[in-house]
Amino acid sequence: MAAGGDHGSPDSYRSPLASRYASPEMCFVFSDRYKFRTWRQLWLWLAEAEQTLGLPITDEQIQEMKSNLENIDFKMAAEEEKRLRHDVMAHVHTFGHCCPKAAGIIHLGATSCYVGDNTDLIILRNALDLLLPKLARVISRLADFAKERASLPTLGFTHFQPAQLTTVGKRCCLWIQDLCMDLQNLKRVRDDLRFRGVKGTTGTQASFLQLFEGDDHKVEQLDKMVTEKAGFKRAFIITGQTYTRKVDIEVLSVLASLGASVHKICTDIRLLANLKEMEEPFEKQQIGSSAMPYKRNPMRSERCCSLARHLMTLVMDPLQTASVQWFERTLDDSANRRICLAEAFLTADTILNTLQNISEGLVVYPKVIERRIRQELPFMATENIIMAMVKAGGSRQDCHEKIRVLSQQAASVVKQEGGDNDLIERIQVDAYFSPIHSQLDHLLDPSSFTGRASQQVQRFLEEEVYPLLKPYESVMKVKAELCL
């Protein structure tokens, strides 16, 4: 049975990233139509530049190519590739079939990587351009969430054990800070992308030097003109047959890092959902379990974690691919890159769409948070109580021993009897502590235990987050809708 299948058929496997999760716009960027249309555009740009620099290419040939950029006979191309065992030459023939007058000058002087690699770089750039505003929107939604809850005390956790208090907004800023680093890295790697350009079979530009009869300047002009037509500021000066596969490492490393950030955020949300302090959106008709109707599973956060793990592992592909590119190139890269580049971007696209949807509907339960604080705060307040007693004339050592005994009794009630923490009640009825009984409410005010959390939130948002989001103001209103 021949390899390949009808990918629109229910009898043929289709990647869930495309069929179930990723956005239509990201799927289109990695589609065959987008790819092969870009090949034709690159052939047109090459012909236009070659004509401008004096090669015998007519206006009629150029116009014929322009008129057929979208006229792609995919069936013919597939048949040609089956016959020739070469995808680029299959599309040269297919393009030439609908451009008979231009057929002889299509791909003039070029090698397969002229269309293959340059198209990949265009796709990487455009895919990054799709991700950047999506990530900015996630940051914006979380920034709104953090600002609104900047002063809401909550129990902090280290080692997932109760620690000092923080605020809900401050905790959210930990998430935002990681995503801001990801946004900066995505922008950097996007701006650092260079075009492969017009380089020939081993990167020496020998074929173009021959076409222009040894004119170095025209060869350099050709490279520059096509690079500018493709919208790049610069091209690699040095290439082998391909652009260095280190570029793929750079791009997928940034995406993998984004995956790590999203995994951490969504894990926190899942843990908070278990504590009943916070939940992701839950639709009115949504079913959490087929057997347990009360369940409210954090399905979206779980999906993000599941896909983020996949995204983090994909960076190993370009690392290994770059390491086995012998001399000017081997074909070890080809099949692998067809999979890992598309999957990385479709996965990143999915987790950003999902995280935006989550961040637009996060639900906080202040009463649950308050109750958990009441359970733990008495123990945390013991040092403040000791200091207040010393100020009232008591002995630190005597007070410490009193607190120690009462704390152990209260802990026994919590752990052995399943009761509430009654340390404060014990202190309130103990005559030894009568000098500070009137101060206990103040000493137990949760806001006095959150330090500068709310001020940190305000400063972080104003100095770091809002300036970073400013270039994306025009796209901030787009909502994230999930079908599944």
Results as ranks from 00 to 15, higher is better:
324 V>E: 08
213 E>P: 13
228 E>M: 10
133 P>Q: 11
476 M>R: 15
87 D>N: 01
484 L>Y: 14
280 E>A: 05
164 Q>A: 10
122 I>C: 09
401 E>C: 06
230 A>C: 08
43 W>T: 00
282 F>G: 13
166 T>V: 10
173 C>S: 10
325 Q>L: 13
180 C>S: 11
392 A>R: 11
140 S>A: 13
235 A>E: 11
104 G>C: 14
107 H>K: 00
433 F>M: 07
302 E>Y: 00
211 L>H: 06
283 E>P: 00
330 T>D: 05
387 M>R: 01
321 T>H: 00
53 L>H: 06
145 F>E: 10
75 K>R: 12
57 I>K: 01
235 A>L: 11
276 K>W: 07
70 E>D: 14
33 R>D: 12
198 V>A: 11
180 C>Q: 08
286 Q>I: 01
476 M>C: 15
230 A>V: 05
437 H>K: 11
468 L>K: 07
303 R>W: 00
326 W>L: 12
270 R>P: 08
396 R>T: 04
71 N>M: 09
64 E>G: 09
325 Q>V: 12
164 Q>L: 11
359 S>D: 14
448 S>C: 13
19 S>L: 06
109 G>Y: 02
471 P>S: 15
100 P>G: 06
39 W>M: 12
329 R>S: 03
248 D>Y: 05
55 L>H: 09
484 L>P: 03
443 L>S: 08
248 D>C: 06
401 E>W: 06
195 F>L: 09
291 A>L: 02
7 H>G: 07
438 S>G: 08
28 F>L: 08
172 C>W: 02
13 Y>L: 13
233 K>F: 10
262 V>I: 09
4 G>S: 14
306 S>Q: 01
210 Q>W: 05
106 I>K: 00
386 I>E: 02
237 I>Y: 11
119 T>D: 02
380 M>P: 03
3 A>I: 14
215 D>Y: 09
279 E>G: 06
109 G>M: 00
275 L>K: 02
53 L>R: 01
484 L>C: 13
67 S>T: 12
132 L>I: 14
31 S>G: 11
204 T>G: 14
341 L>Q: 15
341 L>V: 13
51 Q>R: 09
293 P>M: 02
183 L>R: 03
170 K>F: 04
36 F>E: 09
481 E>R: 15
86 H>Y: 00
437 H>S: 10
383 E>V: 02
112 S>P: 00
94 T>M: 13
81 E>L: 01
181 M>C: 13
436 I>A: 03
415 K>Y: 03
24 P>Y: 10
408 Q>I: 05
391 K>Q: 15
84 L>F: 07
159 H>G: 01
408 Q>E: 06
278 M>Q: 02
194 R>E: 00
31 S>Q: 09
332 D>Y: 00
162 P>H: 06
104 G>D: 09
